[in-house]
Structure formats: C-alpha cells, structure tokens
Design a protein around this nucleic acid. Structure first.
Lengths: 255, 255
DNA sequence: ACAAAAGTGTTAACCTTACACCCATGC
DNA sequence: GCATGGGTGTAAGGTTAACACTTTTGT
C-alpha cells in the first residue's frame, strides 16, 4: 500500500491534454475469482476505476501504462484500449470546488479539472500476486474486488467495467488472457475456472482439458500442486510460442 | 458531388475540443469490390480519410455521425469506433501555415489546428448507391477507391485503414456487416463475394450457401436478378430479427 | 472406507469439407 | 453446343457433447 510514484498535478493545464483522460479496468485472478482494482475516494463516498491524464508528449498507451505502474507497482503489464467514453456531461465529481479545497490543490487546477472529459477505456491483465496496490492522491485506498461484487461506481465506471468484461469475453480466443492473468505455473482446473468466470458459464472438465491440450498451448510439468486437498493436480505452463501462434488464427471451438 | 453541409471552422478553439479529432473509414461494396471513401487535398498532393473535430456538447459518436453525413449525404449510417491513434507527432500537414493562408482561413485558427491531435478511429458501413460523396473544405474531391488499390495516404491513415479492415474481419460474426453494406435485395454470390473480400480468401460456394441458410438470417425471395449473364440467381433479403438474434451469440463456424 | 477432486477413455451426434451433377443463359 | 455461373445433393472425416470409470488424498 505504498505510493510508489507520486503523480504531480500542479500544472495540469500545461502538462496534460485538456478534456482527455484514461480509465483502466485492471483484472486479476485469485482464489478462483476474477477481481478488479478499485479506488475509494478521500472526499466522497464513491468508488472508482484507476485513471489518469495524457501528457503532451505521450501516447494514450504510455499514459495508461504510467497510471497502471503507479497503482500496481508492476511493470510490463498487458493492456489494451477497448472503447472511448464521451458523454458530454462526463465530469468527475471529485474535481469540484469543495473537494479541491479539501485536497489542498491549487485553485488554478480547478477550471482545468472541473470540465467535461472524454475518456479512453483500457483493460489490463495482471498477475495478482505481483501487484502492490497503491492509492492515488485523491483516494484513501486501492483494493481488489470480485467483479461480481462491485457495487455502485462513480460516473459511468460501472458501464466501463461492463464493457471491459464484454471485450474480455469477445477476445478470449485472440488475446493471451490466460497467460497474463495466471501465475507461471497453474493447474488445469484453475485455467478452466478462469475461462468459466469470463464466459459466465460452466464447462465440462474433461472436454475442456482435451481441447486445451489439443491446441498445444500448455505444457504439462512433472510436478503437481502440493498441500492441496484431495488428489494433487498436475501443474502446467504456457508454451508462449505455440500460444501466440494459435491466437493469431484464433482458438477454434464453441465455448 | 455537392457539399451538403458546410462545416464552419471560424472559431475552432471555442467550438471544438482541443487536440481531439475523429477519422472515419467509410466502407462500401460495389461491383463485387470493397471500397473506401477518400479525400484529395486541395493544397497538398495527399489523400486522406474523412475526419472532423468534436464539439463541446457532442459525444464522439455524434461528431463521427455529423462528419459522415456531411461526406456522404446519407443518414442512419452504421458506424463503430474501433481504436484511438495517439502518436505524439500526429499533426495534420494540411494545417500548416502556408496551406492555411492558401485556404483563406483566419490566422487565429492556425495555432489551434497546427497541434498534435489524438484521433478516434471509426469505421462506417454504407450502402454504396445511397452515397453522394462530397468533399470537405480542405479537399478538392471525395471518391471511392478499392481497398486494395488505395495508395499512400496522409499521416497514419494507411494504418487506420488497415486496423479498420482487421476489425471488420474480426467482427464479421458479431456485427451486421452484410446488412449494412449490401442493398436491400442481393444474390447469394454477392453476399459470398463480400465475405470473401473481407476475409481475404475464397470460400466454397455450396458450403457457404448451406451455412448462411442454416442460420436463417436471410430469406429467399421469389424473384431472380434479371438482365444478368448466365443463369439468373435468386434474390435474398436479410431477416433482421433473426440476423440480430444470431449475431448476439455470434455466427458459428470456421471462416 | 468414504467423499471429493483429478486423470483418462468412449461413443453418438453434429458439423465441416470436398466433391459431382444438373440447370439456365448468352454467345 | 458450349462455356459460365447458379442450384442442389452426398459421403468421408473431423470435432463436440455427454457420459463412466479409475486414481489419489484427507478425514
């Protein structure tokens, strides 16, 4: 919970592009559950997605990566833009006068922040255990929540999350989603649970295993998971070369 | 070739969001070929995609729709945003001092236009025959070109086109692409050619027909196409209700 | 021993693929 | 009549879906 990089917002009007922001839906997988990283506001009783602004010399991808590294402490994060959100009424309620005063932000920030923002939505996939979640300057905490237990979020952030999940589901055959969400070694039931969670339905254990193995995208290791109840399952590792090759064509099948 | 709506750019700095633009890849299908709408600059020997800016009170979708209606004269156009292009060096060469002077644009536009722009890419699908292509104020003509005969385009517009085509290919099972590109009545070989063009490979005529019919997304009409060489093919029409229902799940199959 | 989870195998149904054949039309 | 494109059918091979049995482990 340490703030690794303190984003300065002293002169946003000169440092950042006006009216343009990014929002990140950070997914993780832990305890067989899909999780998302959320921030709790210091000033309002509101939860939100991690977000940031775009510097004049940055691409939006660089801005998203900077934000993600600040919130998670992790590097080399897999991320993708997926949609632009541009309702003209789209203003962050945190950036209102009374909150700005509480936050000791200079008044010359006020006009710049308290405007309509067009936001570029990114989703990111991180290995849960590698994340050390850190709040931003407007937030008192940064925590993981199960995607099915996220309550009401600020602004259109529930919509952004829903769209990110939909994108994840649609891209399951074309993006290395398993590779980026799971640890290096994982069991077949874990991989299956990940697929089931994203797809929102159950799959047949035996058919799933046969299909995954037929793609040749994972290699079975000699080891098994230890210290677990019942029969110890084998560990697997992605064969990245084969995985990427298969994803280029898209994993076939009827999931 | 009439300019139906003249976009004014007298006070861009107050009317539009700074640093933010949209670019549209407009697809049409004619003579069994996939076409894209391009503009030829008045001032430079450059071709470009239709584009525009976002007004303060607009969503990016509204801005894209406004632009599309200006260029095509058509309404109710199917369109989707597909990616944001944000290279920090991204400046439109048309908006340089010498061109601005030639164009008789006021000098107070100069600073605003001659900056880095983050651009939101849209693709649009239009029925070819319904389009009356009209150039914008910077262009001397607005014409259809075959997608495989597009030459060098301005800035990153070749990249935008390539990404749009890739998106089209990926979304073929989930978006009503056939419905929006073809006229109301069409033949099975025409629908097949459209699929083949987007997928970039040939399909078996008989298997294609069987598969399309198995989805029940098109209905055969009693009429046939007249005045055509060789055997007269039947005409078909999309059953929009069934089509949309099928697209929600995604058309299955191995195309 | 038993319950729960994991590994492996089999079959029928379905879908895809690769063809062959006939029909209609313009030259 | 013949070349070309269009309409219809069929058989072989492959993939999926549904299901049974055995193995391992903690209690």
């Amino acid at each position: 919970m340490t703030l690794k990089y303190a984003t300065k917002l002293e002169n946003p009007a000169t440092d950042y592009l006006a009216h343009l922001s990014i929002d990140c839906v950070v997914f993780g997988f832990h305890d067989n559950q899909l999780k998302v990283l959320l921030l709790k506001s210091k000033y309002l009783d509101e939860w939100s997605l991690p977000g940031g602004f775009v510097m004049h010399s940055e691409t939006v991808e660089q801005a998203a990566r900077r934000t993600l590294e600040e919130r998670t402490g992790a590097t080399d994060i897999f991320m993708q833009q997926f949609r632009v959100f541009s309702n003209p009424e789209r203003k962050n309620p945190i950036f209102q006068k009374e909150n700005m005063l509480k936050a000791n932000l200079k008044m010359n920030n006020f006009d710049w922040l308290n405007q309509r923002f067009v936001s570029i939505g990114f989703y990111a996939l991180v290995e849960f255990s590698k994340v050390d979640a850190a709040p931003d300057i407007y937030s008192e905490e940064c925590v993981w929540k199960n995607v099915d237990q996220v309550g009401r979020l600020m602004m259109d952030h529930n919509q952004i999350l829903t769209d990110a999940l939909e994108t994840l589901r649609l891209q399951l055959r074309h993006q290395p989603i398993g590779y980026n969400l799971l640890p290096n070694k994982f069991t077949m039931p874990e991989l299956q649970k990940l697929y089931e969670t994203i797809l929102g339905r159950e799959l047949d254990r035996r058919n799933f295993q046969r299909k995954i193995l037929s793609y040749k995208i994972v290699k079975r290791l000699p080891e098994r998971r230890t210290g677990v109840a019942y029969k110890a399952p084998y560990l697997y590792r992605f064969d990245l070369e084969e995985y990427n090759k298969a994803l280029r064509e898209g994993l076939s099948g009827d999931w």
